[in-house]
């Protein structure tokens, strides 16, 4: 049979391949650009938080130096706002990059910064609690990346944060953060050996703490 009608649309295959490659390249480039933008955004907010933190430290120093405990409410409000900002910025970037399996150097230093920010806010919150005697409760939450029950603990803690709102401050500490002596210090301080572990009012609770137990501890079962 005459096969002359048979043709392979070679140039169309090549064109389609080039266009597909270009679309992928464009998507990848845009992805890298947006990653940069995310870091810039997170760093800008982190810089602003640095100033907030300085202000908080100064407020605390001022209140304790001049014994102006009646102004504690201002410090508490500023502290809560700063912690909320922290979870609205760095935490979201870290959560997104984890879900997309991005493991850049910037991501690792962002993760470290987030952990350190949480620790210093936790220390300040503890000091403020001692000086001002507020009813705000603090939870130090130790987790790891490949810990099976940690997402469940996160869910339960988020639930209580939503219920108690300003009355509860949660400070998540990722113990997988490398080369950070401060994380080792705090792990040794509380002798954290398993994950998740939570510290509520200096009492350690190991393993997944369920809703019922936390309800008893945080609000005497009346949440």
């Amino acid at each position: 049979m005459n096969e002359s009608f048979r043709k392979v649309s070679k140039e169309k295959y090549v064109t389609a391949f080039i266009i597909t490659t270009l679309i992928f390249a464009f998507g990848l480039t845009l992805g890298l650009y947006m990653q940069e933008q995310r870091y810039d955004w997170a760093n800008t907010i982190a810089d602003e938080q640095e100033i907030d933190y300085m202000s908080l430290q100064l407020q605390y120093l001022f209140l304790t130096t001049f014994d102006l405990s009646e102004n504690c409410a201002v410090l508490q409000t500023s502290l809560r706002d700063s912690i909320d900002d922290l979870s609205d910025s760095l935490a979201k970037v870290i959560e997104y990059e984890e879900s997309e399996n991005i493991k850049s150097n910037e991501f690792l230093s962002l993760q470290r910064r987030y952990t350190l920010d949480n620790l210093r806010y936790w220390i300040l919150a503890k000091k403020a609690e001692e000086s001002c005697g507020t009813s705000t409760q603090t939870i130090l939450y130790f987790y790891q990346n490949d810990c099976e029950e940690c997402p469940d603990q996160g869910t339960v803690l988020t639930y209580f944060k939503k219920i108690l709102q300003d009355e509860l401050l949660v400070f998540p500490i990722n113990t997988d953060v490398e080369d950070e002596p401060m994380v080792d210090i705090i792990i040794n301080l509380y002798d954290v050996t398993e994950h998740p572990t939570i510290i509520i009012n200096d009492t350690k609770y190991e393993g997944l703490q369920r809703k019922d137990l936390l309800e008893e501890i945080l609000c005497d079962g009346t949440c």
Binding site: I23, F24, F26, G27, L28, L30, G31, M34, Q37, R38, W41, K92, Y96, E100, Y159, K162, I163
Partner: peptide
């Protein structure tokens, strides 16, 4: 109920995967 109370629908374009979106 606590989740529904604090439900927010905000889309930050920085948190969209552009490669998936474009393809």
């Amino acid at each position: 109920w606590p989740y529904l109370q604090s439900l927010q629908f905000t889309v930050n374009p920085l948190f969209i995967n552009p490669l998936k979106g474009i393809v």
